[in-house]
Design a protein around this nucleic acid. Structure first.
Lengths: 367, 367
DNA sequence: CTGTTAGCGCCTTCAC
DNA sequence: GTGAAGGCGCTAACAG
């Protein structure tokens, strides 16, 4: 390797080529400070001619401000960081899309971090995010009932706030931060009642891992709704699976292998799981929407692309993502928690009595 | 507002609470530099006792290094930036997941930026990304044939490289940067031949917007394959749609309204579009997989969740994302372009002569 | 091994 | 309006 003749090795071979504000200033024949002011729309106090010159030079040199340097000088960045477990899951990509829109609107850039469904790693991610000194951190993900990480997460987020950062959660409203949440219990109840009205009498549930609040709440709501409506939802008709398509698949398989018995509807706690369940059912020779009703939660776009189209409880995921960043940005003035409204969307996967599905069902009930 | 009694207003009310490395050093009774060294695993040259003390204090104070400051001091960051058009599109989320894995592996953090399918905005995004001084910028997206932005994009990326950054593209290999690409022409050819072998004689195509290279190449390949195999793919059987589910939907609708005539298979240039097309067909009373074959490209996970399961040309999206960041990281030593291998996956949406898609489904009624 | 001391690129008071 | 200069938090020579 060639040594730098000056003796002092520059940070990188290409370092000389990095164009800095100082270069722009020199080239434009103004001082460093003036160049800085010219570039920031905020400070109007610059001679128009000089400003134009600076801007022209900047453009010609293809200058870009060094964000990290700006961050260090200003003590804050122009980003909002969003932590999700899995960006490939439509649930989270919808949240992300909404969050991005809101960030954009506020002139901020969205940074995404994926934790990969492990609460320990989630903590890690938040730690790392904190290092970036974003203006806002939004954590999306279902809190685990009583995770040992819970306290640590709270402390981490608190520390971030102490440093002047803003926090918002998309989750259950049980952590001391502004939170956008879904009334999962009520959503479950709504769905159970709707199914009862459509004539279903005995529903099985494919739940997520024990302890996952979102899942537990939905199941609880379903049970309550079933009780209210006078239909059956037995504890032993609840099977557990991962919070993924495969979890739904496995859950449905378990149900089928055990024998559906009188079960006329299967509810999975997410659409993603429901889709997996439908696939498993079909493979097992049970036709969703005819032999058995199927429903999910969230109303992801895919719900209308599967056959039959999936009945679900719609959640305004995009708006929720946006809401979270606005909540955080609003600061202490904002309400502590906001609950999004859900609504049952009945589709072909749970046909009513008049439709082909249920009548077939009664015809087949002897099977 | 209360004025700060010192006269000098700190950057933020909470600024005092921001714990810096200096605080840690003081508290641990060592010098600033030593504290820095203690915290970086790289420099082993620190008294163990002192190091432990520093680490303990850091933990107690919940100290996080200030990344922007590190970036400014070191002249480089530990991030790789990925620019995609739409993160909610499975195509891109799969790329992103793969890229994240590779970044992780290299100890880097992935930053995602979405441009939203507008080439002008894509340029904008890259500009902004450049400001973050990531170690790597990966741009994923189909180049438009001869966009006026093309030159600008190249210049932007060049400037980034001049500043010491690394670049990789996931795209057509026609820009002067390391590129991971798909042989879309060949993929199209493969699919056409496979369809011919299954007995299809006349195929229609739902393409993306004119000028989108990915789309154009796939269509061209299909045409060539069809010609080779002696089956029909008439120019007038190619309809254009947006590069989205809705585009596929609209395209299929157009085809149906015009009258399918002798068309026995419909190929959409992406799975996402194919899914939309299937939905439209179904609504129009044409059963995919029975009345007409349907196929797509990419093999997104959803392909096996729709009914009938979708025939497609599989692309290793995740690995491609990973490959791109590795290519960029490898630097000049790396090959300029890498082409991923695709393969046709035949599924129920294009049953062969002996089979029949939907009869499978109705056949189940005897169960 | 450890402390001192320049910077890194930029913003922002403070005088002129 | 404009320039000089201090400081943001941290890293990395350079001496001890």
């Amino acid at each position: 390797m060639q040594k730098d003749p000056t003796g002092r090795r520059p940070p990188g071979a290409a370092a000389r080529a990095r164009v800095t504000l100082r270069d722009v200033a020199r080239e434009a024949g103004v001082s460093y400070a003036t160049a800085s002011r010219a570039i920031h729309p905020g400070s109007r106090k610059v001679n128009e001619a000089a400003r134009d010159r600076v801007l022209a030079v900047a453009l010609r040199l293809n200058y870009t401000p060094h964000f990290p340097a700006q961050a260090v000088a200003r003590g804050s960045t122009a980003t909002v960081a969003l932590a999700v477990s899995d960006i490939a899951d439509p649930y989270f990509s919808l949240l992300a899309a909404g969050a991005r829109a809101a960030a954009d609107e506020a002139g901020l850039t969205l940074t995404l971090a994926m934790s990969g469904r492990d609460p320990g790693r989630e903590l890690d991610i938040v730690r790392r995010l904190r290092g970036q000194r974003p203006r806002v951190i939004v954590v999306a993900g279902s809190r685990v009932a009583e995770s040992p990480h819970r306290e640590a997460l709270v402390e981490e987020l608190r520390a971030f706030e102490r440093g002047g950062g803003r926090v918002a959660l998309i989750s259950q409203p049980d952590l001391p931060f502004p939170t956008v949440s879904l009334d999962n219990r009520d959503a479950g109840r709504q769905l159970a009642v709707a199914l009862a009205e459509r004539g279903y009498r005995r529903v099985a549930v494919i739940s997520g891992p024990a302890g996952l609040r979102t899942s537990a709440d939905r199941v609880e709501g379903l049970a309550r709704g079933a009780a209210d409506a006078g239909i059956a939802l037995a504890q032993r008709d609840v099977v557990e699976g991962e919070f993924t398509r495969e979890g739904g698949h496995a859950g449905a398989l378990a149900l089928v292998e055990r024998g559906l018995g009188g079960i006329d509807a299967i509810v999975a706690v997410t659409d993603v799981m429901a889709v997996g369940a439908m696939s498993a059912l079909r493979d097992a020779g049970v036709v969703p929407g005819r032999d058995v009703g199927v429903a999910g939660f969230d109303d992801i776009p895919m719900a209308v692309d599967v056959t039959p189209e999936l009945t679900t409880v719609a959640a305004p995921l995009g708006p929720m993502g946006a809401r979270a960043v606005r909540l955080a940005l609003a600061g202490p003035a904002a309400p502590m928690t906001e609950t999004a409204v859900t609504g049952v969307v009945l589709r072909a996967s749970t046909p009513g009595p008049g439709q082909s599905g249920l009548s077939d069902l009664s015809g087949l009930s002897g099977v």
